[in-house]
């Protein structure tokens, strides 16, 4: 009986740990996306300040290629749109992992409680 319980606790613990890993990974991705979004926002602001006839370049590897200002603006807007969508996706993911984590934490606490009770009983018998 006690062995069975211990095994259960072990497997629950493993699930919980892997959820934690998943969670921190998602949070990291979310932070990265946030940073990218901010950087793009800054570039967008900068492009908006530029005069219409300003030359804009895009670096491709070591060389700079001249691009159209309008095109550059569109490109940045598109990127921000994409990053925003990605962020929403990750946010949902984080929420669902949080829910799962809470559920498993509860199960774990219950199991640990059972285990303690079983130990107390065994001690009383001995």
């Amino acid at each position: 009986m006690a062995d069975d319980l211990q095994r259960k606790i072990q497997s629950e613990l493993e699930i919980y740990k892997s959820l934690q890993k998943e969670y921190s990974k998602a949070v990291q991705t979310r932070q990265q996306l946030d940073g990218q979004l901010n950087e793009n926002q800054i570039v967008k602001d900068e492009l908006n300040i530029l005069r219409e006839d300003s030359a804009v370049y895009k670096s491709v590897g070591p060389i700079l290629i001249k691009t159209d200002l309008v095109e550059a603006k569109q490109n940045v807007a598109k990127r921000m749109d994409y990053i925003g969508k990605e962020m929403k996706r990750i946010d949902d993911q984080i929420l669902s992992i949080e829910k799962k984590q809470d559920g498993h934490r509860e199960i774990l606490q219950k199991l640990q409680h059972q285990f303690q009770q079983a130990q107390v009983k065994a001690a009383m018998k001995a």
């Binding site: 800054i42 570039v43 900068e46 030359a55 895009k58 491709v60 700079l64």
Partner: peptide, 13 residues
């Protein structure tokens, strides 16, 4: 001058 304004874009100013 050409200035790096981020995300691989450079602007002449």
């Amino acid at each position: 001058v050409i200035i790096d304004i981020g995300t691989r874009y450079y602007a002449q100013k």
